[in-house]
Structures are given as C-alpha cells and as structure tokens.
Design a protein around this nucleic acid. Structure first.
Lengths: 149, 149
DNA sequence: TGGAAAAAAGACATCATTATCTTTTTTACT
DNA sequence: AGTAAAAAAGATAATGATGTCTTTTTTCCA
C-alpha cells in the first residue's frame, strides 16, 4: 500500500512530533538509529519533507530536524502526498480504470468503506492530534523495531 | 497493495471463470485483448497459475486456457499466494515488525478490521461463489478497461 | 576567522518488478 | 508424416524503488 520510503517518512514525522521541538533538534543519525532505517535514504526523505515544510531543520553544529507547532498541524496525508503521491488511493483495487459505484469491480464494496475510513483519518487528523490520541489510549510505542516493554 | 501481476492474474481467473469451460478454451491473445494487459507478461502469469493448478490449459490447435469446475473451487487467496505471496498481509501498515494488539502502531486499530474483512472474503469465497455473487447483484462488469454499458 | 558539525544536493549503485523476445514442446488436423 | 497452432520455458531488457557515496552549503563556536 505505502512504499517503504513513505513508511519511513511517516514514522520519522511521528517520532519527531514526540521527541523534538524548536529547542531539541535531532540529527539524521540519531533518528535512523531509533527507527532502524537506512541512514542516507532517510536523509533524502527528510530533505523532501523539509522542502514541503512538513519538518523543520537547521544546519550547522547543534542543528538537526524538529517539528514546530506549525508543522504539527499537518497530517499523515500531507506526508503521503510529499513522498508517494496519493494517486494510488484513487485507483481500483484490481486496477480497473472505470471502476466505481455504478460499475463496480468484484471487490469494490468491500474495499471502499475501508478506504473512506482510513483516508479520512489520514486527511483530517493532525500530527498533533495523532500523537495526543496515541498518548491518551496508551498506544505510545517506540517506533523502533524492538519490543517497547 | 497487490502487484500489477497479481491484479492481472485475478482478473484473468475471474474472466476465465465467466467465459471459459472445458469445451470453450481461450488463448492468451484473446484474454489480453479483453483485459488490456501486456501479452507476454500475462502468458507468464498464466503459466504460473497453471503450474499451481489454478487454471487449466491444453496445448496445440484449439488449445487455450480455461477454468474447470474443480479450478472454480479455488479462491482469490490462492491466486495471491501463487503470484505475490501473502506475507505482505501479515505486515504492519507502517512496517513495524513488532506491531500487534498489545503493542499497536498508531494506525493498527484502523487497519486491522479492514484486513480481517477483506482477507476473509479472499480466503473463504470460492471463485465460483465470487462469480455467482457478481451475477446476483448485477455487478458483472467487463473486466476490460472500458465502459461496460 | 578557521574548523567542525550538520543538512542539502547530486551522482551513482543495486534490486525487484514489469515486460519482451526467442526457442522448445505438445497436440490437432490434413 | 507434415504442418500449424498454441502453451511452456528460458533468456534478455526496461523501469522504478531502494539504497549509498561524495561534494557543497550553511552555521555555530572557539
């Protein structure tokens, strides 16, 4: 569904939302160590996110990446737009260009409700709210590929 | 979610389920013209499906591909197993290896119900039933990338 | 003002998916 | 038997995603 690149990007943004701020910037190296993602590859992704104003960064000593309060008003959807593009979500599950409610493919009515649910979440819920709901329901996990307890 | 290869394969199987039988075999060329898929690529996929006994075929003049009644007892899941493999469905939406109900990623509880619904459909519903339900609810469409009316 | 730290940028390498092309095998029909 | 039709099989090519490496730019700090 999402590319590896996009998964890395989403995890990075959530990680930065939780652990960084204007006063606490985090370097690529530290992020990749936490998230266990390929270092130069994630650097590229963070550059892209930075160009699209989804993460903030400063160069030089003590520089690094962080999420400003403004950045936290963006959504997962914005991240997907930046990295993968969102065309794929418009496409039929079986690849039929003309598939729609009038002219449904065999799995159309199974897939569409899911799409609407998850895409609404991605589109409407800000990063800030995402993090808040994770904390609220004890869903905070290390995004690292390790046990969190 | 599914590769192009797998989408082509599923569409081919459904197409053959509707339009072929032991007495009416269909050649690769005719199938690719209907489905608008790359000809040699689909040929490879049909070979694979044939090896896994998901479609039947005969060589020589008047030969071609078809679905026997036995073939129609298979499922979409079997097709996915044959072409893409099903590992991807076990993986977390954000790529976290340890994501589960105890230790959920931020989208876990949004994604899981969908997965269960659609995978149950793929796993339990035979091709035969799929075709029947398409007909029953007037969802029969040409699988071709064209208007069907 | 010089050195070091860090992101930014660009060029390059690798791999899987997608797709094509050619040859071989099987089979029906004359 | 010979020929043509069709799938089967194998080799090759093109593309995009993934990943790495090197150089440049910016900025802090001594």
């Amino acid at each position: 569904m999402l590319s590896n690149a996009c998964k890395y990007a989403i995890r990075s943004v959530l990680y930065l939302a939780i652990h960084s701020n204007e006063l606490k910037k985090i370097g690529v190296k530290a992020i990749t160590e936490e998230l266990e993602t390929p270092q130069p590859f994630l650097a590229k992704l963070l550059q892209q996110l930075s160009r699209d104003n989804l993460v903030s960064s400063t160069k030089g000593p003590n520089g690094g990446f962080f999420l400003s309060d403004i950045d936290k008003q963006n959504t997962i959807w914005n991240v997907i737009e930046s990295i993968d593009g969102t065309d794929k979500f418009d496409n039929c599950f079986l690849g039929l260009k003309k598939c729609n409610g009038e002219n449904p493919c065999p799995v159309h009515f199974i897939v569409v409700p899911f799409k609407e649910t998850i895409l609404a979440d991605f589109r409407d819920k800000t990063i800030e709210k995402y993090v808040a709901s994770m904390e609220g329901t004890r869903q905070v996990i290390t995004l690292k590929d390790l046990d969190s307890f």
